[in-house]
């Protein structure tokens, strides 16, 4: 029983974080059909904001808010630097500019801060543990589960009930038509980047809460996770991203418990091979998105 609870909490907390990461990526992809390679760097930005403000004596919550705000700012900046100037040109051009922007941010962190890991301040509650039904769990896993439930519900509400959300979904389904009906293209795209930055900022706090330090390359793993989750779930569907995130967490956690120490080093290779198999079976991903329209 204790084991089942432990397993469940592990899957849900990891899956919640993965789902949020994937969601931030799909929101951009759904509208622009473009992958944001600089997405992981938004998480890095949140982490370094925490590090840079750690000496200021602000309460932790305020620093956290500041970190999320910085992630949003950099999200919008990504749009202006890497996407807007080349958006109408080839897909490859945008992939490359966002890849270059990601490299730019990483190397700026290397140059101006340090290549070495930096400590990030965390409230005590992140390092405490509780016992539920005999399973000992770190409180941060429960926080992650709670945060992901709240955020997923909030995003679902935003997308379904508000004007902004409906306009974003309209733009994702048929961009040209949405524009003709008076949806302002640049505003929608910028808000999608802001939302993506917001999700990245929150995930950054939860993710870095697990590790406790931030390095320039910290965004790579979340980026990969988001990539794989979206490919499994279906590149264009928001529910797909969430399903993909939880499925990937299930695969990862199962491998963690079943693989021997020798094989555990190859866990990533196993996970990705499994993903290739899923794609062989369903090249479109598990859940199909809205009918594809023309890109900007």
């Amino acid at each position: 029983m204790a084991f089942a609870i432990q397993f469940l909490i592990d899957v849900l907390s990891l899956g919640g974080a993965y789902a949020l990461m994937a969601l931030g990526l799909v929101i951009i992809y759904g509208i622009l059909r473009l992958v944001n390679f600089a997405y992981g760097e938004l998480i890095m930005v949140a982490g370094y904001t925490m590090f840079l403000t750690s000496g200021s004596g602000l309460p932790w919550l305020l620093m956290a808010v500041l970190a999320v705000v910085m992630a949003i700012v950099f999200g919008i900046l990504t749009d202006y630097v890497a996407f807007r100037p080349v958006r109408a040109k080839s897909v490859t051009a945008v992939l490359i500019t966002s890849f270059a922007f990601s490299n730019l941010l990483q190397n700026a962190a290397l140059l101006f801060i340090s290549p070495r890991p930096r400590n990030v301040p965390l409230p005590d509650i992140f390092s405490q543990t509780v016992s539920i039904g005999g399973a000992i769990t770190p409180v941060r896993n429960l926080i992650t589960i709670a945060a992901s439930i709240v955020l997923l519900a909030a995003v679902a509400f935003l997308m379904r009930k508000t004007t902004l959300g409906i306009a974003m979904r309209a733009a994702a389904t048929n961009f040209t038509m949405a524009r003709m009906l008076g949806v302002p293209a640049n505003l929608i795209i910028s808000s999608a980047f802001a939302l993506s930055g917001f999700l990245a900022g929150v995930v950054g706090l939860l993710w870095i809460g697990r590790i406790g330090t931030v390095v320039p390359g910290v965004g790579l793993e979340p980026l990969l996770v988001a990539f794989i989750a979206t490919v499994i779930g279906g590149m264009r569907s928001l529910p797909g991203a969430v399903v993909g995130g939880f499925l990937l967490a299930l695969i990862d956690t199962t491998l963690n418990y079943t693989l021997s120490q020798d094989l555990l080093k190859f866990r990533d290779a196993f996970t990705f091979s499994l993903v290739i198999l899923i794609l062989l079976w369903r090249p479109e991903g598990l859940i199909k998105g809205p009918a594809s329209g023309q890109r900007t």
Partner: peptide
């Protein structure tokens, strides 16, 4: 130490060429 300057310049060049 100055690290990463080369990559920053190359990244800027790449974005500029793409535009």
């Amino acid at each position: 130490q100055v690290i990463g300057l080369t990559e920053i310049v190359l990244a800027l060049a790449m974005i500029a060429v793409m535009i």
